[in-house]
Nucleic acid binder design. Structure first.
Length: 845
RNA sequence: GGGCGUUUAGCUCAGUUGGCUAGAGCACUGCCCUUACAAGGCAGGGGUCGGCGGUUCGAGUCCGUCAACGCCCACCA
C-alpha cells in the first residue's frame, strides 16, 4: 500500500476521525458466535446519569478500556457493553431541580403538560406519570452526552450492547429476579421500624447510611420514682419523652441495682414506664440511665425488640410529630402534647426544653455537644425511624449460614488489588439486618405485585398476586392483574397494586444478567456468564459489588465474575475525592481539547490499580507529548522505504541488540497486563520507547540514511520495532497508534495481534550491545554539553576505558557509535569505565 | 474503638520474589534550530527511602513498634 505520511503529524481531529471509522468498520462489535473460553466479558459499571461526567469518572473507565483492548488484541472476543444507571433518586432529584417540579401521585396525568423553560419556584406539582416522563426525557438527553464523551475518549465499547436501568429489558429482568427470589423465600416483606428520610419520604438501607457530626445538646431531665424522688437521664431528644417506653441501665450498674423491675413516671406527661436492665446501656454515658423511645435511634429499636417493649411512635413520615393526641397520653398529658403535636422534631425539642424548664424537670441548661448522627448519604436532614411495611432480600445480616456462604464468595473472588477483599469481608461481617430494597419513590422498577382486598376492605399482604412472566415489566399502579378488571382497583373484593419501587441497587445488582440477556437470550447468556471482570470503585464494594454477589449467589449459585478490578479515586489538590459537588469541575472534554484524548488516557492509565491519585494536570501534558512523539517516531521509522522490509534483512548487531531489549519489554508488559496492572505495562512501554528514540534511533540514523544491506537491516529493524511499539501502546493511546498504523498497515491496530516473544524469533542479538554503545555515546554527549558546544561537533578521538566485556560489546556496533558521536576514531583501554572525548577545535567558529 | 491503605528528590509518583554508586516526569540550571520531533532535543545539580529497634553477608524492599495523613466500619442516650 502507498504510504501517506503527513509532513507534520498532529493530534487535532484524531478523536472524531477514528471514532467514526471504528463505528463504520464495527471494529469493536461483539461476535456472538464465539464460545465462552474465547470471550472476555466485562460487567461495565453503568454510570449514574444525573448531570455530567467528571475526571474522576474518566479515570476508572479508561483503565477498564485498557483491559478490554489488551484482551481483544490477545485474541479474545471482548464483550464490553455500556449501561446507564438512570433510575432512582439522583434522577428524580435532578428532574425536580432542573424543571422545578414535584411529584404528587394523587394528581391525574396531564397529557398536555410540558415543562417551563425556567425552573418553577415554588415547584409545580405534577402527576406520577408526568414526572416519570420528565425523568425519561432528561436521562435520554444526558445519555447522548455521556456516549459522546466515552466515544471521544476512545472507549472500545460495543455501542450496540447498551442498556439503561430503567428500560423495559432492565425492568423485566429486575422484576423476574425479584419474583424468583420471592418464590424461593430469599425475599420477604415485613412491617418493622426502618430508617427513614423525611425529605425524600422513603426508607433507606444500611448500605446507604453515613454518619455526620452534628451539633446537639444534652438535656439532663428528671424522671420520678413512685415516692417522688428524681431519676436523672440525659438525652439529646427531649421531644421524644412522649414516646418513652422505658428507662434502661446496665445490669451491673450498682447505682441503679435496686431500681430494676420498678417503674418510674415520665416528666410532664406522668406516664408510668418500667426501669429495665440491658447490657447495651453504657454506665459511662450521661447518668448511666438511657431513655428508650420508639424510636429515637437504632439502639432504641434493639432494646424495643429484645426487651419486648410497647410501641409509642409519634414521628410521622414527614418528620413531624403526629397532630392527634396519642391514646397513651390521657387527660392533662394530652393537653401538654397539644403543645408539640404537628411540629417538626427540632421545633418540638425547643418547646419541650422550655416546658421542662418551667416544670423544674430540666436540670440546668442544655449542654451543647457534637455527635455523630445517621444520615441518608444523599439526604440533608437526620434520619428518623418510622415503622412501615418494607421488602427485604436476605443478605446474611440475620442468618449466620448465609453470612458464611457470602463470606466464602468473597474469598473465592479474585480481587485486584488484593487488599480490597478485606473491605468486603468487614462489610459482610458487620451486617445488622437484611437488605431493604423497597423505596417509597417513583422513578424506578416497580415491586411487581398486587394484593387482594377482601370484602371488609382489608388488604391481604400475605397473599400477593404475582404476574406472569409474559406480563413483565408491570407497573401495578396502572396495570391490572389477571382475573381482575381495572374497575376493581381499591374496591372490596378487588385488588391493590404495590406502590413502591425497588432501590436502584436492586436492579443494578443484576447488571451481568441485564447485559448478558439472562431472561431473553440464553445463547448469549451462556457465552458471557460468569463474566471475567467487574471494574468499579472501592466506595461501592458494600453496595454494588456485594449486592451483585448476593443476587448471583441466589440465582445461579456462583460468583458473577472471576475478578473484581477496583479502581482508586481522583483526589483534588486538597486530597479530597474529586467530584462535581466539590466545585472542582473542568469537564473531560475540556481536557481532551487541550491535551487530546490520548493525553487524558495516559493520565488515567498512569494511576496505579486501586490507588487514589492526586489530580495533576501536568500528567496530561506528558501524555500529549508522548502521543506526539509516537507519531514522529513512526514518521521517522517509515521514512526510508515505501514498502515493508522483511525481518530477514535484520543482521546488524545494534539492530538485533535493540530487538532483544524490546522483546524483554514485551514480555514484561504482557505479564503486567495479565495481572491487570495496566499502569506497569504502560510504564515499561514508555521507558523503553523513550530509550529507543534517545539512543537507538540516534545511533542508527546515519546508517539508515545510507544504502545497502546494513541500511536495509536498519529499515527492517525500525519497522519491526515500530510495529511492536504501536501495538504495545494501542490499549493506552488508541488514537495515535491507530493513526500511525494506518500510514502503512491495513486494518485496525486494535484488531491486530498483541506482540509476543515469538515475533522476535531470529532477530534477537545481545541486549548488552545497545547498552554499551549508549553509555559511551552518553559520555560523549556529556563532554559536548560540558564544552557548551553543539551535539554536531566533530570528535577527533574517543578514548574508552572499560572492562573487556563492555569493549567486546561496543566493538560490534562501533561504526554506528562513531557516526552518532561524529567521531573519527575510537580506542579502548582495559579498566574502570571512563570515556575521554577529544573534540575538534574548529567546530565553534 | 476496630480495620485497610499511604509515607522514597521542591511537586506527582515508579521501585515485581531483599543484591552492585536508589529511578522517572515536572520544576530548577546549562547547552543545542541536529534532515522524526523547538508546544522539541542533549546534559546537569538535588534524596540520612517517616522515626526507632530487629532479622540478614546485605533492607527502600522482610519482622516489630511508634508517628502523621487518608479512607472504610462502629449502638446517635
Amino acid at each position: 500500500m502507498t504510504r501517506n505520511i503527513p509532513d507534520k503529524p498532529g493530534l487535532d481531529g484524531l478523536e472524531a476521525k477514528w471514532d467514526e471509522r471504528w463505528e463504520n468498520d464495527a471494529t469493536y462489535r461483539f461476535d456472538t458466535s464465539k464460545t465462552r473460553d474465547e470471550i472476555f466479558a466485562i460487567d461495565t459499571p453503568p454510570p449514574t446519569v444525573s448531570g455530567s461526567l467528571h475526571m474522576g469518572s474518566v479515570f476508572g473507565y479508561v483503565q477498564t478500556d485498557t483491559h478490554a483492548r489488551y484482551r481483544r488484541m490477545s485474541g479474545k472476543e471482548v464483550f464490553y457493553p455500556m449501561g446507564w444507571d438512570d433510575n432512582g433518586l439522583p434522577t428524580e432529584r435532578r428532574v425536580q431541580n432542573y424543571y422545578g417540579v414535584q411529584c404528587d401521585p394523587s394528581l391525574p396525568y396531564d397529557p398536555g403538560f410540558s415543562p417551563s423553560d425556567e425552573p418553577n419556584d415554588p415547584p409545580f406539582h405534577i402527576s406520577r406519570r408526568n414526572f416519570i416522563e420528565l425523568c425519561h426525557g432528561l436521562t435520554a438527553e444526558d445519555e447522548e452526552v455521556f456516549e459522546h464523551v466515552w466515544r471521544t475518549l476512545g472507549l472500545s465499547v460495543d455501542w450496540t450492547q447498551t442498556y439503561a436501568t430503567i428500560d423495559d429489558h432492565s425492568r423485566r429482568t429486575s422484576q423476574k429476579a425479584f419474583l424468583n427470589n420471592l418464590e424461593r423465600g430469599e425475599l420477604y416483606a415485613q412491617e418493622a421500624p426502618v430508617l427513614w428520610d423525611i425529605d425524600f419520604q422513603t426508607a433507606v438501607a444500611q448500605a446507604e447510611l453515613e454518619d455526620r457530626e452534628k451539633g446537639g445538646a444534652y438535656h439532663e431531665i428528671a424522671f420520678h420514682k413512685p415516692n417522688g424522688d428524681p431519676v436523672y437521664i440525659e438525652t439529646t431528644r427531649p421531644e421524644l419523652i412522649c414516646s418513652c417506653v422505658a428507662l434502661v441501665a446496665h445490669p451491673d450498674d450498682d447505682r441503679y441495682r435496686d431500681m430494676f423491675d420498678s417503674s418510674v413516671t415520665t416528666p410532664l406527661f406522668g406516664v408510668e414506664v418500667p426501669f429495665v436492665a440491658h447490657h447495651l446501656a453504657d454506665p459511662e454515658k450521661g447518668t448511666g440511665v438511657a431513655m428508650i423511645c420508639t424510636f429515637g435511634d437504632t439502639t432504641d429499636v434493639t432494646w424495643w425488640r429484645e426487651l419486648d417493649l410497647p410501641t409509642r411512635a409519634v414521628i410521622q413520615p414527614d418528620g413531624r410529630l403526629q397532630e392527634e393526641v396519642p391514646d397513651w397520653l390521657p387527660g392533662q398529658a394530652g393537653e401538654i402534647y397539644g403543645e408539640i403535636g404537628g411540629l417538626f422534631a427540632n421545633q418540638a425539642r425547643k418547646k419541650m426544653a422550655s416546658l421542662l424548664a418551667n416544670s423544674g424537670d430540666l436540670v440546668g441548661e442544655p449542654r451543647q455537644i457534637t455527635h455523630p448522627v445517621k444520615f441518608y448519604e444523599k439526604g440533608d436532614r437526620p434520619l428518623e425511624i418510622v415503622t412501615s411495611r418494607q421488602w427485604y432480600i436476605r443478605n446474611g445480616g440475620r442468618d449466620t449460614g448465609l453470612n458464611r456462604e457470602l463470606l466464602a464468595r468473597g474469598e473465592e473472588l479474585h480481587w485486584v488489588p488484593e487488599f480490597m477483599g478485606v473491605r468486603y469481608k468487614h462489610w459482610v461481617e458487620g451486617l445488622t439486618g437484611d437488605w431493604l430494597i423497597s423505596r417509597q419513590r417513583y422513578f424506578g422498577v416497580a415491586i411487581p405485585l398486587w394484593y387482594p382486598i377482601d370484602a371488609n376492605e382489608i388488604v391481604d399482604y400475605d397473599n400477593p398476586i404475582v404476574p406472569d412472566d409474559s406480563q413483565l415489566p408491570v407497573d401495578p399502579t396502572s396495570d391490572t392483574p389477571k382475573g381482575f378488571d381495572e374497575s376493581q382497583r381499591g374496591q372490596p373484593g378487588g385488588f391493590a397494586g404495590d406502590r413502591d419501587i425497588m432501590d436502584t441497587w436492586a436492579t443494578s445488582s443484576l447488571t451481568p444478567q441485564i447485559a448478558g440477556h439472562w431472561i431473553d437470550d440464553p445463547d448469549l447468556w451462556e457465552r458471557v456468564f460468569p463474566m471475567d471482570i467487574r471494574p468499579q470503585g472501592h466506595d461501592i464494594i458494600r453496595t454494588w459489588l456485594f449486592a451483585t454477589v448476593v443476587r448471583s449467589h441466589f440465582e445461579h449459585g456462583e460468583l458473577p465474575w472471576e475478578t473484581a478490578t477496583i479502581n482508586g479515586w481522583i483526589l483534588d489538590p486538597e486530597r479530597k475525592k474529586m467530584s462535581k459537588s466539590k466545585g472542582n469541575v473542568v469537564t473531560p472534554l475540556d481536557f481532551v481539547e487541550k491535551y487530546s484524548a490520548d493525553g487524558v488516557r495516559y493520565w488515567a492509565a498512569s494511576g496505579r490499580p486501586g490507588t487514589d491519585t492526586a489530580f495533576e494536570e501536568e500528567q496530561l501534558r506528558i501524555g500529549r507529548r508522548l502521543a506526539i512523539k509516537i507519531l514522529n517516531g513512526a514518521r521517522f521509522a517509515l521514512g526510508f522505504s515505501d514498502t515493508d522490509v522483511e525481518p530477514t534483512a535484520i543482521t546488524e548487531p545494534l539492530d538485533t541488540s535493540m530487538l532483544a531489549q524490546l522483546k524483554e519489554t514485551v514480555v514484561g508488559a504482557t505479564a503486567a497486563l495479565e495481572e491487570y496492572d495496566y499502569a506497569r505495562a504502560l510504564d515499561l512501554a514508555e521507558r523503553s520507547f523513550w530509550d529507543w528514540t534517545d539512543d537507538y534511533v540516534e545511533l542508527v540514523k546515519t546508517r539508515a540514511y545510507d544504502d545497502g544491506p546494513a541500511a536495509e537491516s536498519a529499515h527492517a529493524a525500525l519497522q519491526l520495532a515500530l510495529s511492536v511499539y504501536l501495538r504495545l501502546f494501542a490499549p493506552f493511546l488508541p488514537f495515535v497508534t491507530e493513526e500511525a498504523w494506518s500510514w502503512w498497515k491495513d486494518g485496525s491496530v486494535h484488531r491486530a495481534s498483541w506482540p509476543t516473544a515469538d515475533e522476535f524469533r531470529g532477530v534477537v542479538g545481545e541486549a548488552g550491545i545497545l547498552d554499551a554503545v549508549s553509555s559511551i555515546l552518553g559520555e560523549v554527549r556529556r563532554a559536548k554539553s560540558d564544552a557548551k558546544t553543539s551535539m554536531r561537533t566533530e570528535v577527533e578521538l574517543v578514548e574508552v576505558t572499560a572492562d573487556a566485556e563492555t569493549v567486546g560489546l561496543a566493538k560490534q556496533a562501533e561504526d554506528d557509535l562513531l557516526a552518532a558521536a561524529r567521531a573519527a576514531e575510537i580506542r579502548y583501554t582495559d579498566g574502570e569505565f571512563a570515556v575521554l572525548s577529544t573534540l575538534a577545535q574548529d567546530s565553534s567558529s
